[in-house]
Nucleic acid binder design. Structure first.
Length: 936
RNA sequence: GGGCGGGUAGCUCAGCGGCAGAGCGUCGCCCUUACAAGGCGGGGGUCGCAGGUUCGAACCCUGCUCCGCCCACCA
């Protein structure tokens, strides 16, 4: 038997969350077993960068994943959620090298490869698991025993295996290509890592003297590259230049002579129709040089400075300095024509921000076009579905136009390329184990390729490398393919597409059945959160709270710029209140509609914190009233349906409906629909109505009053049971508060130790009570109408009013009579039932419910005829408008002939109701005019 | 230059052929013993513009317009 439990009036998440997190972890509830026979449901967490800390994008994505995994686990699936972190090659370099520069004034080259890597590992050991700790605090039920890292032994082995296999198959190769060079990080970056921005620059016109007389005009946005020119090209059909093709020009400043060539890529309409050709530093020019057969002269080096064979005086200058010098010298020599402002697209490295230099270099590539085929087919055939579906086009478009993927990087932190060059022959040995001899000539003098692999190479293998591949493990057999991958749309190309290609290639199966693309979290103004703008809402600040001073101190420690400090002061003037993980999680779910962006503001989260608190207090109320309750006895009463009221039947029916709604919504990844359905149920059905209706029955009566005691027991049981099931429904969204409440609720003995391993409710159609829902809805309308009259006339709460209810249909009369107490309690007044055709007292305020029930509130002299007339006239106006529309529709022969019969019948019924309503309202208005005249 | 998404209440967004909705904000009344982080009630919309299809359009089609985003080697 249960006794009352007292809870604090305000919910304090901090203590509760820490306690249950420990409990879940200690009891291994997050762990999954690949040998379990139940249906597997596996997901892989997109591994965050080891450099990172949890940001709102992670919080959103991971909350949606945790909702799915907790939901499926409760449904009985073998739910596995794989955690891990990514070594994030460039990001780590960036961070460590910046630090090295600041503290010791050194570069990574001063330190050397080995020493640098030592530091990197030390740093990783020290701060690499910070983000995992943060994920735990959010309540994410990741299977921590499986936690992996993209540079751990298993991943290393998978990377080697994949590289070697692809190389054997000719899908990885080494080639001289035009690549994107980041001179700040001194590495190649892939096409995806370059952001092209249109910047304002200039178009310089250069006048190249032709050998033998005359000149030819060329235009360029990068005059400094002329030092590497090896030709001038014109269109072969351009009559202006036909005679010049084959002649040479005297390339200013260099003393070189280069030919005038014809190539059809030249647009005769642009500028002069002649273009300078710099094969080493422009992709177009390089292509042209291949077609025409021109030498390639590299005049810009790895750090973005001019180098030989550029003339001595320019060597060592940055491209920017060189530009000034070259322009000045050209001008001095009379080689400069017009200079016009011009928009130039400029590629910048995403990570370093440096202007990317197109360079011709030998690098390793993945032949993506071959791998893309199956990845395209799999999506076309629906083996993998993208949700929301719109993203399919984006994926397809990119895949169909995919280019070879440059995978080598001139960095140190990462997977070193398993290729060895031989001192005595040209053979390149690619091997799983470090070789001791050249596979070509047997020579012993081998040198391993200095480069490492693009971080995304190991990420591409992640869905199966984490499950033991290349070994054929039980885990791989059970959890591959994953059920769902949830990630942000900005890494569809970087990651999703590449996992699809690699997964299909190595396993012959798609890596996941559904890709759920999350929204991008922005601030309340729709701006992307950025540290520079100072508008970043840190998820853990929301959970634990943060003062403005603490936020500023943190920004200062990160050397945030002045604008960021200003932004923080403006956006977080009062700091961030502590709201708990549940409030944040629920907010993210409730605001996550199918749009591409999710605007988050602290106000919104605060609103949902109110919801958590509301739930807390409703539970408090229930627990305060559980004296003498016995769950077993209730189950017996439930079996024979003894003593059930309309309200009991109604709330239980509503519970079934909300469970069905949540189930359907989660199946369709409609998280906001699911969250809002629960919100609506808890607040507006359970709290606003059922708990209010329960109150009178919870009062302790005389023990010998058996009927009353039984009734009380039923109400207690309904409350406890509905609340218990509500906790289950809500648990994936707000795991902590629901566990806390659930543990305290009186409940049948056979349930497990934790809410998170109970069975998730599914809506049961048989338990939906249509009649109870319909009756309850009508009674609610009556109560609401009565409250409206009361509120309109400002009847003081202390004043007892008796309303008169007039209803025409006998069933409605019976319903109202039977549930008089319900109406009186919820509208806080007394009521009498009168004959429909009897006249209400003069000076009564009136309201209609539908067309056949009227409420009259006698107010004696208190009624204000002006207010009342205006109110009723407005109501009448609306009704007239409705009738007008309906009559027009029903008067239309086409409508009657072509619309489905049920629609026609429905419209007829509505018309009848509206007409009845109009009659009654008109009467009221007339009566009021007489009464009003008398009164005045 | 191509492609994608969006314009619905003051704000944020659902609805995507059959009575225009929610949350928040706003206004009025109320400390009614679960909750003032609360209760009750009210007001608020030519569904971006113009055509078309349909018995019927916020919803489907066409054009226009404005706002985002992604892709693209034009000097």
């Amino acid at each position: 038997m249960s006794t009352s439990v007292a809870l604090p009036k305000q919910y304090d998440p901090s203590e509760v969350e820490a306690r249950w997190l420990r409990f879940w972890l200690e009891n291994g509830y997050f762990h999954s077993d690949e040998s379990t026979a139940t249906v597997p449901f596996a997901m892989t967490l997109p591994p965050p960068n080891v450099t990172g800390s949890l940001h709102m994008g992670h919080a959103l994505g991971s909350t949606m994943q945790d909702i799915l995994i907790r939901w499926r686990r409760m449904q009985g699936s073998n739910a596995m959620w794989m955690p891990g972190t990514d070594h994030a090659s460039i990001a780590v370099h960036h961070l460590l090298e910046r630090d090295l520069k600041r503290r010791e004034g050194k570069t990574r080259f001063d330190l050397g490869r080995e020493a640098f890597l030592e530091r990197a590992w030390a740093w990783k050991e020290k701060s690499g698991n910070r983000i995992s700790e943060q994920e735990k605090l959010m309540g994410f039920s990741l299977d921590w025993q499986r936690e992996r890292f993209t540079m751990d032994e298993g991943s290393n082995r998978a990377v080697r295996e994949a590289f070697v296999l692809l190389h054997e198959q000719g899908l990885i190769f080494r080639a001289m290509r035009m690549i994107n060079w980041d001179p700040a990080s001194e590495t190649v970056v892939s096409d995806l890592e370059v952001d092209v921005v249109e910047e304002s620059g200039h178009l310089w016109e250069l006048r190249y003297p032709i050998v033998g007389g005359g000149e030819i005009l060329v235009a360029t946005t990068r005059p400094e590259t002329m030092l590497g020119d090896t030709a001038v090209a014109v269109h072969p059909d351009d009559a202006r230049y036909t005679a010049l093709v084959g002649k040479e020009i005297e390339l200013p400043l260099t003393g070189r002579r280069v030919p005038i060539v014809a190539d059809s890529f030249v647009d005769p309409e642009f500028g002069s129709g002649a273009v300078k050709i710099t094969p080493a530093h422009d992709p177009n020019d390089y292509e042209c040089s291949l077609r025409v057969g021109l030498p390639v002269l590299q005049v810009i080096d790895r750090v973005g400075k001019m180098c030989a064979p550029a003339p001595e005086k320019y060597v060592g200058l940055t491209t920017e300095q060189a530009r000034k010098a070259v322009v000045a010298d050209l001008e001095a020599g009379g080689f400069l024509g017009e200079i016009k402002p011009h928009k130039v697209p400029r590629g910048r490295s995403q990570r370093s921000g440096a202007v990317v230099e197109p360079m011709l270099m030998e690098q390793w590539f993945v032949r993506a076009s071959t791998l893309a085929g199956p990845a395209i087919a799999a999506v076309q055939e629906g083996k993998t579905k993208l949700v929301p579906e719109e993203w399919t086009k984006t994926y397809m478009h990119w895949m169909e136009n995919i280019r070879d993927w440059c995978i080598s990087r001139q960095l140190w932190w990462g997977h070193r390329i398993p290729a060895w060059y031989c001192a005595s022959c040209a053979h390149i040995t690619v091997a799983r184990e470090d070789p001791t001899a050249c596979a070509g000539c047997g020579g012993a003098e081998l040198r391993q390729d200095e480069d490492i692999l693009d971080t995304w190479f190991s990420s591409a293998l992640w869905p199966f490398s984490t499950l033991g591949w290349p070994d054929k493990t039980r885990a791989l057999a059970t959890y591959y393919p994953n059920a769902v991958l949830a990630t942000a749309p900005d890494i569809i190309f970087f990651w999703v597409a590449r996992m699809m290609m690699m997964g299909l290639h190595f396993l012959g199966k798609v890596p996941f059945r559904t890709v759920y693309l999350t929204a991008i979290v922005t601030d309340e103004n729709g701006d992307k959160m950025s540290k520079v703008k100072g508008n970043v809402i840190d998820p853990l600040d929301v959970v634990f709270g943060a003062t403005l001073d603490a936020m500023l101190a943190r920004a200062d420690a990160e050397n945030a710029p002045e604008v960021a400090i200003k932004g923080i002061k403006k956006n977080f003037a009062k700091g961030v209140p502590a709201m708990g993980a549940d409030a944040l999680r629920f907010s993210l779910a409730a605001l996550n509609t199918s749009g591409r962006y999710l605007r988050l503001s602290l106000d919104r989260v605060e609103g949902y914190r109110h919801f958590i608190n509301k739930l807390w207090n409703a539970s408090r109320f229930v627990l305060m009233n559980m004296d003498g309750y016995d769950a077993a006895r209730f189950e017996a009463l439930r079996a024979n349906r003894g003593g059930w009221s309309l309200a009991d039947r109604w709330i239980l029916s509503r519970l079934q409906r909300v469970a069905a709604e949540v189930d359907a919504a989660l199946e369709a990844f409609r998280f906001s629909d699911a969250a809002n359905a629960i919100y609506q149920f808890v607040w507006h059905q359970l709290c606003d109505w059922y708990i209010e209706l329960a109150k009178p029955f919870l009062l302790q009566g005389e023990p010998q009053d058996v009927a009353r005691t039984t009734r009380r027991h039923v109400v207690q049981g309904v409350l406890a049971s509905v609340l218990e099931h509500t906790m289950r429904l809500l648990h994936p969204f707000a795991p902590y508060v629901t566990e806390e409440i659930w543990q305290k609720l009186p409940k049948p003995a056979q349930l497990p130790e934790s809410l998170m391993v109970t069975v998730y409710p599914r809506g049961d159609e048989h338990l939906v009570d249509v009649e109870a829902e319909r009756d309850m809805a009508q009674l609610q309308e009556v109560a609401v109408a009565a409250r409206m009259l009361r509120s309109t006339y400002g009847v003081p709460p202390a004043q007892t009013v008796t309303i008169e209810v007039r209803a025409r249909p006998p069933a409605l009369r019976a319903l109202v009579t039977e549930h008089q107490a319900l109406i009186e309690h919820t509208a806080k007044l007394r009521m009498t039932l009168c004959d429909f055709d009897s006249a209400p007292p003069s000076g009564a305020a009136k309201a209609m419910v539908g067309g056949e029930l009227e409420i009259a509130m006698p107010l004696g002299g208190l009624i204000d005829p002006v207010t009342e007339r205006a109110r009723i006239a407005k109501d009448l106006g609306k009704t007239d408008k409705e009738i007008g529309g309906l009559e027009k529709k029903l008067g239309n022969a086409d409508f009657l002939a072509k619309a489905p019969p049920d629609v026609v019948a429905e419209q007829r019924a509505r018309l009848a109701e509206e007409q009845a309503r109009r009659g009654r309202l008109q009467e009221a208005l007339e009566l009021l005019s007489q009464g009003g005249a008398e009164g005045a």
